[in-house]
Design a protein around this nucleic acid. Structure first.
Length: 537
DNA sequence: GGGCAGCGCAC
DNA sequence: GTGCGC
DNA sequence: GCCC
């Protein structure tokens, strides 16, 4: 169907019409303006696409004329068929709509004049760098994921499930696979051990089989995390998730060393645990006065490896030393005050109670808010470390200025007992993203103080925020890393495509992709969708 | 030998 | 700028 | 710590 007919005085766009795909021609438009326009597109519920290839509409700066735009797009006017050509619109249409706070009619005035040349073939984008990458990578010999799996009995195998077309009930979704220039074939990911492509469910069932190994490695990872050795801890953590996926008891060095993410050093340590039943390095750590103190101090919220070491160097060894002698920040004071309570896990039911309180107060202020508890609660865990509550509003506006009133309301009734972080500043890079970290206490007897995070976000960031705050942390890191491989950029705010990095800094931040749902993000990354329960790595 | 994310806040 | 937690 |  043709949305646009030249004889029409104006085009009335149906905001959610899947054909209403827009591409913003970046030329001549600065980064900040581009971000504003991208957000506007999403605010008006139009579909932003990452490349001009499938866009019905191209939004371009008024400084250009049509031939110039087509030349930038490497489109040959004279050889293109009329119906395959995108309609080029002045960016003014969008700014006017923003002024009116509503989509203004797409009159002829906004449309770049169509030259009176006959058009024939489909546009060619062969000059696009992203596609070049596609070719390059396609020609590289690649190992399938399954080749990375051990030959032995460790069932780390991942069947790369492919989206079947019936996954896509929503028309809006259909273009996702096309709009993103994914350089990899269906069901194939870059080489590596992509945790985010796997379900954590198999691991859940096998916790007993290699429990001794996992527990000892976890203890080491926890200790390394409290030193300045976070990367070593990272490796331990990844090794643990790999071993969790093993469906059989590991009993040979050969099968250990084959496991992805486990090298010689870790393999030796794992073998030591299997062979001797003990782990000397861990025992050394656990009997070390230094590590004992570091571990003790590091459990104070707001005290990390460096502060802990500093306190140790000052001769402190116990919490009482810290309480009486150390110079404590505000956060550390609160952290120390609730030292034992913060170390306890929160039963699911209680998280639900806390959520209910926050919901009640927030909805009393603004009805219709979307309120979702994330974190391990959303992943279905029986107990949680803290409570992460994400708040937004589908209208894209009502979330603004919401955090402070919510906090005030919760404070007034005594639900919030202490504050850790409260930021209600407008953040340049993140829209009006605001967050509260604090401590809450449910009414009644025998209640415990719990860590509560409340995050208020604009609706166009909802899916990315949902994904981010649902975790797990390891899952997020894996997914970010995968995005990186695709020259994309995934954050709690957005998924950008066409990111250009040089020497590990971003030369070009790329363009935000339209991410209405978590599913859309998985699709962009060529990943099978994983519901929250399967992200519990 | 470098990357493993990068942010805003407290200090 | 450093340290910290997300 | 592992991977490239």
């Amino acid at each position: 169907m043709n949305l646009f007919n030249e004889n029409n005085a104006s085009v009335h766009l149906i905001p959610s019409d899947p054909n209403a795909t827009f591409y913003i021609l970046p030329n001549g438009i600065g980064k900040d303006r581009r971000t504003i326009f991208s957000n506007a597109i999403q605010h008006f519920h139009l579909q932003l696409v990452a490349s001009p290839e499938n866009a019905r509409f191209i939004l371009a700066d008024e400084q250009f004329d049509l031939p110039k735009v087509f030349s930038i797009l490497k489109l040959d006017l004279s050889e293109s068929e009329e119906k395959s050509l995108p309609i080029v619109i002045q960016i003014k249409w969008l700014t006017d709509s923003l002024k009116e706070k509503n989509l203004v009619p797409l009159t002829k005035d906004y449309i770049f004049r169509t030259p009176l040349i006959r058009k024939k073939t489909m546009p060619s984008f062969s000059q696009e760098p992203v596609i070049e990458e596609k070719k390059t990578i396609k020609n590289k010999p690649k190992r399938r994921l399954s080749d990375d799996q051990p030959q032995g009995g460790c069932a780390t195998q991942v069947k790369q499930r492919r989206y079947s077309s019936d996954d896509d009930n929503n028309d809006m979704m259909e273009d996702y696979n096309d709009t993103v220039k994914n350089p990899f074939k269906n069901g194939e990911l870059p080489k590596g051990n992509w945790m985010c492509s796997m379900s954590s469910q198999t691991a859940k069932k096998n916790t007993e089989i290699n429990k001794d190994i996992i527990d000892k490695l976890q203890a080491m990872a926890d200790l390394y995390n409290k030193t300045n050795d976070k990367w070593r801890a990272y490796s331990y953590q990844k090794a643990i998730t790999t071993i969790r996926r093993c469906t059989k008891r590991i009993d040979s060095y050969e099968e250990i060393i084959k496991l992805p993410g486990i090298g010689e050093s870790l393999a030796k340590k794992i073998w030591e645990i299997i062979d001797t039943g003990s782990f000397e390095k861990l025992e050394d750590f656990q009997s070390s006065e230094y590590m004992t103190a570091i571990n003790l101090f590091g459990n104070i919220w707001g005290c990390g490896p460096n502060i802990a070491k500093h306190w140790y160097d000052q001769g402190f060894r116990t919490l009482n030393d810290v309480r009486t002698k150390a110079k404590l920040s505000q956060n550390q004071t609160v952290g120390l005050k609730y030292y034992d309570e913060f170390l306890e896990r929160i039963p699911r039911d209680e998280v639900a109670e806390i959520e209910a309180v926050v919901k009640e107060h927030a909805l009393a202020l603004v009805p219709g808010l979307t309120i979702q508890t994330c974190g391990s609660y959303r992943r279905g865990k029986a107990t949680c470390g803290d409570v992460d509550i994400l708040i937004t509003h589908t209208d894209g506006i009502s979330h603004q200025g919401l955090l402070i009133p919510i906090i005030d309301s919760l404070r007034k009734c005594g639900f919030l007992t202490d504050d850790l972080v409260l930021s209600d500043k407008y953040e340049e890079d993140s829209g009006s993203h605001v967050k509260y970290f604090g401590v809450c206490l449910l009414p009644g007897e025998n209640r415990k103080h719990r860590r509560l995070d409340i995050i208020v976000i604009p609706h166009n960031e909802y899916a990315c925020a949902l994904l981010y705050f649902t975790g797990s942390a390891l899952f997020n890191r894996s997914m970010r890393n995968l995005a990186h491989q695709y020259n994309m950029y995934l954050s709690q705010h957005r998924l950008n495509t066409g990111v250009i990095r040089k020497n590990n800094s971003k030369i070009n931040m790329g363009t935000p992709l339209y991410t209405p749902t978590e599913e859309s993000i998985f699709k962009y990354l060529n990943l099978p969708y994983r519901p929250p329960e399967e992200r519990d790595h």
